[in-house]
Design a protein around this nucleic acid. Sequence first.
DNA 1: CGATTTTGACCCGCGC
DNA 2: GCGCGGGTCAAAATCG
Length: 315
Amino acid sequence: MDCSSYINTSLDLNINPYRVHEEVPKKEVGSKLFSLGMTKFSLKEESTDELEEELKRVTAENKKLVEMLSVVCENYNSLRSHLMEYMRRNPEKELSTSSKKRKSESSNNNNNSNLMGINNNGNSESSSTDEESCKKPKEEENIKAKISRAYVRTEASDTGLIVKDGYQWRKYGQKVTRDNPCPRAYFKCSFAPSCPVKKKVQRSVDDQSVLVATYEGEHNHPQSSPMEATSGSGRSVSLGSVPCSASLNSTAPKVVTLDLTNSKSSKDSKNNEPRKDSPKLPKNLVEQMATSLTTDPNFRAALVAAISGRLMHNN
DNA sequence: CGATTTTGACCCGCGC
DNA sequence: GCGCGGGTCAAAATCG
């Protein structure tokens, strides 16, 4: 990692509150106004006040942006470290896929009740092929290649089963399963009639603020609108959830979780002085952030969407 | 009024 | 063969 010397986590959001003040020095403006006489001075003073107000507003906005960015980065890194830690602890643990899900759900309840266990499933996908090939080689391969999972943390108060992933979904069923008291919702892709993709969404047993979305199949059409499309008609929008870039990679299903609703840390950072928070981040954390930002376009897209969404929400 | 959601009924595969 | 449970269907309800 030799990039530490030139890490730039800026998202080009024009965050630079101090320079704005520097570019409009009050003294200079004031002295110019005095030379223009009293009548003009009063008018100018009004516009200066307006400017100052706007500057304050922009500064506050920038503060918010910095806050949100640091919160998002912290969440991302804590999650990432959780995942890494779990993968280290359970390098061989694997879960079955949908074709044998009934087996797995009855015999591997321990795995299913553990969110991180499910996470592991996505990452150790390829390692389970040998075992499976003994039973139903072709079918298994076919199905496994089309399954992916995404985990979305939502607001605790959000009781909907909506996962925004950029596609349009039509709900066609809901069922309460034995393992989980929370109902499981079944969605079909409604953007294209011929699209075979299905999605199952259920809350995690362990953490009910986490939605587990299981995708089956591959879309045969482009994404409708990543930032606008929601599950279904948009009638009920999950405020806390954020597209998680759960791409339907044909060979390696991705499992991505973004926790952008960590209200605690969000509040904490608001209580503290936000600008002083960012420099407090350890250097390796910053490196990780920068690496993630530069290498993962999906993360950047999600980040930008989250920030812009929060801004809109705040305004 | 059309599109979407809800929800009970039904189908089907699996284990015993 | 039977029962259980996940997945799907489809009519009714709801929403914009």
